[in-house]
Amino acid sequence: MVLSRLKAVFILVMGLVVSLWGRAADLTPAFHKTYANNSLLTVEEQILLRQFDFYLVPGILSEAFLQADDRSSVSFARLTGDYLGAQQELLQKVYKFNSVRLSSSSKSVKEIKENIRKALNQSVDAGRKAVFLTHSLGGLALLEELVDSSNLRDVVAGIVFLQSPFRGSPIADAYFDNPIYLDKLLGTVIPFFNTSPDTIRYLGTSSRSQFMKENFEAITAITNIPMITVGGVVNGQKSLFTPAVNIMAMGCLEKVFGQCVVRLYSGPYDLSDGMVPFESSKLPGVDFVRLDGADHGETVVNIPFQRYDKARTTTTLLRLLLPSLNPL
């Protein structure tokens, strides 16, 4: 009897999951059509969006890609520009929106969540709603904060999640579980980037899958907020992330005579942006965009092999999100 009831519950839940996934629309064709127009937001669109507060939430290693952030002993910002810098300049200087790039942390997800909470409370005090543009770890922190703080969900008018590994990243798994002891080799290096093993473990598939399972109801409620998830796919194309792309696509850096000599990951295999499998970047019931040729770094900093202009991409995503934004 108990087993029969458990089976019935399982079938019900799986049916709900399938139903939610069916609700999601593939906005990729609409994205490319709008992106090709290469036009700024109209005056009318800008007026509509100016009523919102915009918050940018960077992901892991952001400290090393921000000139004003001295928490990392290593900085690449002079070479790559600031993390989400193009997006911030577009929103602040071109559109004159109230846009703030929140401080992220590669060492503490709790700290990112606290910064998100403070920002939302500021919007509440000002009688405004918020639109979020997040990347990678920043998106996970936002989702978790909205799970924990249900009272703040109504403050959020809309969200764009760029390349967040909602079901985890196999690269984080490979850091701890591999035959070449990467965690030992890199363990003395990551503190210089203000990064901790706890954060890497947080990004792993076990941690994220467990979170999604345990908070299924809350996440389902949160997806009523207008949002778009964006995932990149760079398989077979030039990218600084090619070694990681190969690991997630076939389990190793290179195959010899069709076989992995040193297997770093045992699957399931997927297309990816070099850090996040494409399927992991999607949420049940949420509209999504697939950026073919976009790796995990090019959407937020300036690195080789860029295929998408950051300002045009941001304008396009805002234009797609605008019709469904929750008004004041």
Rank of each mutant, 00 (worst) to 15 (best):
M1L: 08
S4A: 13
S4C: 06
R5A: 13
A8Q: 14
V9D: 08
V13Q: 06
G15H: 06
L16Y: 08
G22Y: 10
L27C: 04
K33W: 12
A36S: 15
E44T: 14
E44C: 03
G59F: 13
A64F: 00
Q67F: 04
A68I: 04
R71Q: 13
L79I: 04
T80R: 10
T80I: 12
G81W: 11
G85S: 03
Q87K: 11
Q88C: 06
L90F: 07
L91N: 03
Y95C: 01
K96Y: 08
R101Y: 09
S105C: 09
E114M: 03
R117L: 13
K118F: 05
V124E: 14
G138R: 02
V147F: 09
L152P: 03
V155I: 14
V160H: 05
L162C: 01
F166G: 10
S169D: 06
I180R: 09
D183W: 13
L186P: 01
T188H: 12
V189F: 14
P191E: 10
P191R: 08
P191H: 10
N194L: 11
D198T: 15
R201M: 13
G204P: 00
S206H: 10
S207W: 06
F211Q: 02
F211N: 01
I222Y: 10
T223F: 08
N224Y: 10
T229Q: 02
V230K: 00
G231S: 01
Q237G: 04
T242F: 05
C252M: 06
K255L: 08
V256L: 15
F257N: 15
V261F: 11
R263H: 02
P268D: 08
Y269T: 02
D270L: 00
F278K: 01
E279D: 08
S281H: 03
L291R: 00
E298S: 13
Q306N: 11
Y308A: 07
D309M: 05
T314W: 01
L320P: 07
L321W: 08
L321Y: 07
N326C: 09
P327Y: 11
L328S: 14
